[in-house]
Simulated assay, not measured.
Amino acid sequence: MKRYAYIGCLGFIAVITTEFGVIGILPQVAEHYNISIDKAGYLLSAFALIIALTGPFMTLLTSGFDRKKIMLTAIFMFLITGFVSSFSPPFWLLMLVRILPAFLQPVYIATALSVAVSEADHGQKNELMGIVFNGVAIAMVTTVPFATWAAGLWSWEYSFMIQTLVSLAALIVIYFLLPSMPVKEKKSYGNQIRILKQTPFVFSTLTNFFMITAWFSTYSYFADYLNKAKGMDPSMVSYMLLLFGIIGVFANGAAGKMLNRNVAGTTAVFLSGTLIIPLLLYVSDGNIWATITVIGIWGSLYSPSFLNASTYMISSAPDSLEFANSLATSFGNLGVTLGTTIGGWVIVTKGVEYTPWIGFVFGLLAFLMMALKEMSEKRSRVVSTCEN
């Protein structure tokens, strides 16, 4: 039922606006608190680390609860975060309220995806998941650049005010338009964690991890990179985020349809951006129009990354949708943490212009994991054929 997918998408917009809305304002936050840019990056990496460490466990613990109540609770936590953060509290408190909703972020995503495909035919599932994940691209084209623009026009606190309003809208829509959805049959923990013993699933998980690490080593410092490496002011950066997101919306829709036909091939196509974009950014140098073109290509290849990563992992564990999704979210955010951390270290020690090359290295590792997964699956098919 597409209505459920669109409701999940709206909540995803709130989630992404809160998690990634800080990317465009990290330089202002660093200046306000008189800290380095890599320390300001903890607002993103700490959030992602909590998700990485607790995501699967929280999803297992909440798997028996009414799905509507889970989604409402999660979005309410995001609302509280935006509200408190908008008052520019001490940095330790800002960090604390930032990480609290992180405990429920993977729970929300896994639940929203499960709700979206709950009444769908098998052939529609990837497309409906694509609608939910379009929340990432829509946030990149609307709320994230708007929050960055507002921060540049007034102050960084306005970015968090916008996050609060988006969360409030999502909370209202879920409360009034989503029916109560109690879990009819709770799967045992043993049945769900069994997928961790499957070699193809392990390689798909590592593919996800390296893929997201590759993208976020540069994307986490998008504003800082465009400012220092490409000479763009905050206003221009907000326009680039807008362009990034507009193209991403279309890319996400295309990826959803492509995944219905070939999951591995689609994942490889978009993953190729981790190798292509560093080269194009280097070649574009200081040419503004060339840089804008590269940013457009960057947005088209990056935006479906979470959708591709989740679908790629689920394809290896079709009977454990929610748990596999939570692991995809968890390892994806572990990738966000590692990418942000390494990117921050490179900025401090070498310079922001070197961050895309981190993505190049991790992109190669992701392709290696895809190859190993394919080899593992072929070996399993050969063994199965011989036994029969």
Score class of each variant (00 low, 15 high):
Pro200Ile: 09
Leu280Gly: 05
Asn325Cys: 11
Ile75Tyr: 03
Ile162Ala: 06
Ser238Phe: 04
Pro356Gly: 02
Arg379Tyr: 11
Leu321Met: 13
Gly344Tyr: 08
Ile347Phe: 01
Ala223Asp: 00
Leu53Pro: 09
Arg67Pro: 03
Trp298Cys: 00
Ser326Asn: 06
Thr62Leu: 15
Leu327Arg: 00
Leu259Tyr: 11
Gly64Glu: 13
Pro145Asp: 12
Asp66Ser: 12
Phe87Val: 09
Pro179Ser: 13
Leu365Glu: 10
Ile23Thr: 07
Ala116Cys: 07
Gly24Trp: 09
Gly335Gln: 04
Arg194Ser: 12
Val249Ser: 02
Trp156Gly: 11
Gly24Cys: 12
Ala366Met: 05
Leu49Ala: 14
Ile292Pro: 09
Lys184Tyr: 06
Tyr225His: 00
Ala290Phe: 14
Thr59Arg: 07
Gln198Cys: 00
Met211Tyr: 04
Trp92Glu: 13
Val283Phe: 14
Met370Glu: 08
Ile358Asn: 08
Lys68His: 06
Ala48Tyr: 03
Pro200Arg: 10
Ala52Pro: 00
Ala223Phe: 04
Ala74Val: 12
Asn208Asp: 03
Met232Trp: 11
Met313Pro: 09
Ile342Cys: 04
Leu307Cys: 10
Ala255Ser: 15
Met240Gly: 09
Ile23Ser: 05
Thr164Gly: 09
Leu243Val: 07
Tyr302Leu: 06
Thr337Val: 04
Ala169Phe: 13
Ala46Pro: 07
Val269Lys: 05
Val141Asn: 05
Gly296Lys: 00
Pro145Lys: 05
Phe244Glu: 03
Phe91Lys: 08
Lys68Tyr: 11
Thr266Glu: 07
Leu321Trp: 11
Pro27Ser: 11
Trp92Pro: 01
Phe47Cys: 04
Val136Met: 06
Ala328Val: 11
Leu281Thr: 11
Thr164Cys: 12
Gly24Arg: 10
Val383Asn: 13
Met240Phe: 14
Ile80Asp: 10
Leu275Phe: 07
Leu44Ile: 12
Ile314Ala: 10
Leu243Asp: 07
Tyr6Met: 12
Phe210Thr: 02
Ser272Ala: 15
Ile195Asp: 07
Ala102Asp: 02
Ser155Tyr: 10
Tyr158Cys: 10
Gly359Gln: 07
Trp289Arg: 04
Ala110Leu: 03
Arg3Asn: 13
Ala116Asp: 05
Ile195Cys: 08
Gly24Asp: 07
Ala120Ser: 14
Val348Ile: 13
Val97Gly: 11
